[in-house]
Simulated scan of single mutants.
Amino acid sequence: MSHPLRHTVNCSLLFTELPLLERPAAARRAGFSAVEFWWPFVEAVPPDRQVEAFVTAIADAGVQLTGLNFFAGDMPGGDRGLVSWPKRSSEFRDNVEVTVGIGERLGAQGFNALYGNRDNAHTEAEQDELAVENLALAARAAARIGATVLVEPVSGADQYPLRTAADALAVIDRVQAAYDVPNLGLLADLYHLAVNGDDVDRVIAEHTDRVGHVQIADAPGRNEPGTGTLPLDQQLSALAAQGYDGWVGLEYKPSTSTDESFAWLPYERR
Rank of each mutant, 00 (worst) to 15 (best):
V211A: 06
T208H: 02
D209K: 14
G221F: 09
G197N: 12
D199L: 09
T227F: 14
A219F: 14
I216G: 10
N196G: 14
A219Y: 01
S261N: 03
L239G: 03
P220G: 09
E251W: 11
L250D: 05
G243S: 06
A217M: 12
D233T: 13
H213S: 10
H207A: 01
N196Y: 13
K253N: 14
V203L: 08
E224C: 15
Q242Y: 09
S261M: 06
L230I: 00
A205D: 15
V200G: 05
G197S: 03
S261G: 01
N196S: 09
D218Y: 05
S255E: 08
T258D: 00
D233W: 12
T256Q: 15
I216L: 13
G212K: 00
L250F: 03
D233A: 15
L250R: 00
L236C: 07
N196I: 09
F262G: 10
D201V: 10
R222C: 08
E251M: 04
V211P: 05
A240L: 08
H213E: 08
Y244V: 12
G221T: 01
G212I: 08
G221H: 12
V211F: 04
G197E: 01
G246K: 00
D198H: 02
T208I: 02
T256S: 15
S237K: 14
Q215L: 05
L232R: 11
P254M: 02
T227N: 06
A240H: 01
L232V: 02
T208V: 07
D199A: 11
V203F: 02
A219G: 04
S257H: 02
G228L: 15
A219P: 07
S255H: 02
V203T: 04
V203P: 00
V203Y: 00
D201H: 12
Q235F: 04
G249W: 03
G226I: 04
E206N: 12
V195K: 05
P231A: 06
D201Q: 12
A217I: 13
V200R: 05
T256D: 14
A217K: 12
G221Y: 10
Y252G: 03
N196A: 13
P254R: 07
E251N: 07
V248R: 00
A240I: 05
R202F: 03
